[in-house]
Design a protein around this nucleic acid. Structure first.
Lengths: 411, 411
DNA sequence: TCCAGAGATGAATCCACCC
DNA sequence: GGGGTGGATTCATCTCTGG
């Protein structure tokens, strides 16, 4: 009997039959999605083509195929075990109905939404950027390890620090002691993990990419495995493909058992498992915030111009959505640390290769540093505008208004 | 027969029967979710308790109840119309199956995930922070207005600007003209809206909150209505509750028809529709402002002035955080529908009672309507500034620049 | 009406270059 | 030489067109 750290080629229904009842802690299933297409993709060096077939006679055939196999997965699960079934919107409702029948709707735990940004041609209709993972436990008592995430940056600090209670009407209010002082709360760990997961899609340029179609990012699997299993537990993936779930299990010190019908897939999984590596993603590690170069004010100004915001350029902060003489119109907002001259230089240099005729520079610093001549702006087709708060600030400092303080304030 | 801008009390099944076949452009349904509880909540001043019953004999009863009503919704929809059914994870799969049967799975357009952040004591398990909205059209030809969002911060500038083509080996490369210069691409609007929507849950302190249970944020409804209907279209909400969808419809110049079984709900909806309010969410402003309408632009301008935003005043949109002669400085942004004179009048009238000496009016409409004299501004201590896009727009229409189109475009 | 193939596209990487 | 900037690349979608 094979039980752990094994790769098996063939229909999982047959192999599952050989697995002992109640021996598995976590099942992860990434079955075909009923997309009615054959997925093909090549490795980057064109030496190998991978494919798998997701074409079916009918929805009935598809449902029956899966139900038979998921039933077996339930059998091999421990009573404290869980199953995670990943699917897309195509057949998700049918699959959940199936899980309700097999596991009981009372054992439904979560509908996890994996949300990602994806490149695609513009679409009429909404761009589909999520997949669903259904999380069912085998019984009411199941393993679950809590994960906490950071507080949202907009969270009021009081919410984290202060204790709360219900007042006489049952409304939640901050707790105060007898002297009316707020009561400080206990240490908090953060926000419990939500069921919507923002995890970047596996990028075409990523080293992690194997060339196998529909490869999942390793972080997604790491999360599933972390929340629903402990070290040394046994993870089963009956449609393991390139083996991402097994690599994740290995890295997290879990035992694993992978099955796939494709010989190529199993060979690929084997080679990944020989050197299990967790490739790092700059985006994942640093977060989106690391790419944001602009502050709130800069972004507000660009927003009020309905501009396309550009973060990855030192000289250009954005573009108008309208072109001028069929060329883009670049915008730069002067930074607090920049003189107008510096800002102008950066903008012009950045524009040189972008073919912009018209450029807009928004001045945010006081006029003291005005060393440029009007003619220089015009020669460069550069419009210089003063920011609202610059103009308003000058008025406030140097009033040209017929203003007298109201008498009640003046005395 | 009632057709638009009407509120009806009673079972929607009965009222739907009186609605003409093929007369409605968009149906939004926020029915009970099969939560098997009675929802109750109180207004902030505790004067009124609202409740609605979501207890059912069985799932069958619930499904039959809804199917009957959704069938009627389908009948009253125009052929180019769409239906949006909101639900939570409890019964979403049953509801989608029902929609597949009634509308046909080929008319399934999107599974929209509304993701919100929420406070909760973490039970064991994942914190549920999403609801699902199923989007079905009545036929293959349906209204859809595209909305574009910002590019990811990781996107680089050349992707947005440059044209590409395939080279002799079939590889995608940047296009160059015969002289070796890169070829500029066409105007871009941004990235198409995805089907996962991060919209903050209604801030409990926002004045938008009415005390009605399960109230939805207005931004969510604005998006739905924007993408699937045009101005003057008829929006139907058969479970309208406190009327958020109707308020959104009103703000977007759509006609509306709301039905609810509760008298209290209808009274509340009526009072909200008398003075539609709108909350701005700081999270949305600073984060991924999804699309710009008039309100967004107003907010962006106020943000760039670091102003305090005022939502409930027709004459004043915000205040500077700095005072002038110890009095607040009021700001108003001219609306598309207002002449400068009207805007000025509203601002001055609103300021009369607030003791503002200095007022700022930001002009957003072309100068045609300029009928005021400088002296009138000065007499009133009023600063009038042109908005950036107004200035830029005038430059683009009436260039004073030494601009020559590139030779390849000119000939 | 449906399928194949070509074209368009943007997220997130890799990598060359430049001080 | 190394840290940062900007340009180049990959590839899975979606659209469109022709047969």
């Amino acid at each position: 009997m094979t039980k752990h750290n094994t790769l098996l080629v063939g229909d999982c229904l047959i192999h599952l039959a050989n697995i002992e009842t109640g021996s598995v802690d976590l099942v992860y299933l990434d079955p075909p999605f009923f997309s009615q297409t054959v997925w093909r993709s090549k490795t980057r060096d064109n030496t190998q083509e991978y494919s798998f077939n997701d074409k079916w006679e009918s929805l009935q055939e598809y449902k029956a195929f899966l139900a038979e196999r998921v039933q077996e997965c339930k059998r091999v699960l421990k009573n404290t075990g869980s199953i995670f079934l990943q699917c897309d919107r195509t057949a998700s409702h049918h699959l959940r109905l199936m899980l309700d029948e097999l596991f009981g709707s009372e054992n439904f735990q979560s509908e996890i939404i994996w949300n990602y940004r994806r490149w695609s041609n513009s679409k009429s209709g909404l761009l589909n950027t999520h997949q669903t993972i259904y999380f069912y436990s085998k019984s009411a008592v199941y393993k679950f390890n809590r994960i906490f995430t950071d507080y949202s940056p907009t969270t009021n600090i009081d919410q984290i620090l202060q204790e709360r209670e219900r007042n006489e009407y049952g409304k939640v209010v901050y707790k105060r002691d007898t002297t009316g002082e707020v009561v400080q709360g206990k240490e908090k760990k953060g926000v419990p993990l939500s069921d919507v997961w923002d995890i970047p899609y596996l990028n075409p340029k990523a080293n992690e990419r194997t060339g196998y179609p529909t490869q999942k990012p390793i972080l997604l699997l790491e999360r599933l495995i972390t929340i629903a299993s402990d070290e040394e537990d046994l993870i089963l993936d009956p449609f393991c493909g390139s083996g991402t779930s097994l690599v994740a299990a290995q890295l997290l010190n879990r035992r694993w058992l992978g099955i796939d019908v494709s010989n190529d897939a199993i060979n690929l999984a084997q080679s990944r498992l020989n050197i299990p590596k967790r490739t790092s993603s700059r985006l994942l590690e640093l977060g989106e915030a690391a790419y944001l170069n602009q502050n709130d004010k800069t972004r507000s100004i660009l927003n009020s111009l309905d501009a396309i915001i550009v973060e990855r350029n030192a000289g250009i902060d954005g573009f108008l959505k309208t072109h001028y003489l069929e060329t883009p119109v670049a915008i730069k907002i002067q930074r607090a640390s920049e003189s107008l001259e510096e800002a102008q230089k950066k903008l012009l240099r950045a524009c040189a290769t972008k073919g912009c005729i018209l450029k807009i520079l928004i001045r945010t610093n006081p006029r003291r540093d005005l060393t440029l001549f009007e003619s220089e702006f015009e020669d460069n087709n550069l419009i210089v505008l003063d920011s609202y708060d610059l103009i308003v600030g000058e008025w406030l400092n140097n009033p040209r208004l017929k203003a007298t303080p109201p008498s009640d304030i003046a005395n």
